[in-house]
Write a protein that binds this DNA or RNA. Structure first.
Lengths: 132, 132
DNA sequence: CTTGACCTTCCAGCGGCTGGAAGCTCAATA
DNA sequence: TATTGAGCTTCCAGCCGCTGGAAGGTCAAG
């Protein structure tokens, strides 16, 4: 299977797969007589694995760790679980940050008349606020 | 006031201020006889403005628009409000995405024994799932 | 036998900084 | 006065995770 098909099956761009190979996230694919990369069923598992993990927000660094657990027949599922829990925790941190930003903006928006006059508490806040 | 002091007052790094000048987000600062950038009170307002807007998650592109409204004596506060509302909306989209990721991960984590055995529904899902 | 889609490599750029090198100036100290 | 050391200047490179484009080889269909 050529890279284009593999990409389609895995939900990735061909370019992305080459990039992953480049940075050593995945092993170099086998090559056909014409020099084209050739992907088999297990390669597809790996590619899907990466696209799924990336899609769930794991960094490429995390994906390296996850892949090495995936390949390790003697892994402990606890290690995988720990990575997933870390990921959940960092998502929750991010969500909290974003909600706080949204709340701040909402307060400002509420106080802004939103008409054709120039007076604007949002701009005033931006320019004048001293935020610790 | 030199760039270091201005940076401290505005809550930015000196490097960041030079960068903002470089990309034309802020106007080039006045220069002293020694060639050092020299910042005054109004410059500080602008710098704080940018750090506050960036801190609230506005992109540099957004900051350009916000700054031009800030400088426009004939602005309509409605335009500012609209930008802020857009920003809130995009935060909410992001939060929803993240919560969905966390939920998916939580389901997987729940099903993982998290012991010293290799069997792991998380890894299984990653490698085998066909997610539309 | 040509078209056009696919494949290959390599290099450049996105956003938004951040770090480092090399060389100024300036204020304080020995 | 001579010298630190901090702070300023410029410029170039790198971070992440791709993505786009150029220049070229290969393949299947018409």
């Amino acid at each position: 299977m050529n890279i284009g098909q593999a990409a389609a099956q895995a939900g990735l761009h061909a370019k992305t797969i080459r990039y992953y190979e480049d940075i050593g996230l995945i092993l170099p694919a086998a090559r056909g007589a014409n020099g084209y990369r050739d992907y088999g069923v297990e390669d597809l598992h790996v590619l899907r694995f990466v696209q799924r993990a990336r899609g769930l927000g794991f960094s490429v660094r995390d994906c390296r760790d996850l892949l090495s657990l995936y390949h390790d027949r003697n892994r402990a599922s606890a290690d995988v679980k720990a990575l997933a829990e870390q990921r959940i925790a960092s998502i929750e941190v991010k969500v909290a940050e974003l909600r706080s930003l949204a709340a701040t903006l909402s307060h400002l928006v509420e106080r802004c008349a939103g008409d054709d006059r120039p007076d604007c508490p949002i701009l005033d806040d931006f320019a004048e606020a001293h935020h610790a």
